[in-house]
C-alpha cells in the first residue's frame, strides 16, 4: 500500500512510519460508547496516527476509508 501521510512536523511520509490509533470518538459520546463501540464508517473518518519513526507526535488524520485518500492532517 502506498498510503502517505503529510506530517505537520516531518513532511510527507510513508504510512509504515506510523502506528494506527483508532478512530476519534465524537465529543458527545458517552464513555461506554467510546470504549466499546466503533462506528466502522465507510467514508470520511477522523482517526489518530502516532508518528513513532518521526516526531513521535499524535496526529489527527481525516481519511476516506473507501479510497484511503487523506483529506486533512492536524
Amino acid at each position: 500500500m502506498g498510503l502517505r501521510i503529510v506530517c505537520p512536523t516531518c513532511g510527507s511520509r510513508q504510512y509504515t512510519e506510523f502506528w494506527f490509533g483508532g478512530e476519534v470518538p465524537d465529543p458527545g459520546e458517552e464513555e461506554f460508547e467510546r470504549v466499546w463501540l466503533r462506528s466502522n464508517t465507510a467514508g470520511l473518518q477522523r482517526e489518530r496516527w502516532f508518528h513513532y519513526a518521526g516526531c513521535r507526535r499524535w496526529l489527527t488524520v481525516e481519511r476516506d476509508t473507501r479510497t484511503n485518500e487523506i483529506h486533512a492532517v492536524a
Binding site: 490509533g21 489518530r48 502516532f50 513513532y52 513521535r56 507526535r57 499524535w58
Partner: peptide
C-alpha cells in the same frame, strides 16, 4: 516502552 510512550503522549494531549 514504545507502546507505553505512545500511550502516555496520547493522554497528555
Amino acid at each position: 516502552a514504545e507502546q507505553a510512550e505512545a500511550w502516555l503522549r496520547d493522554w497528555a494531549e
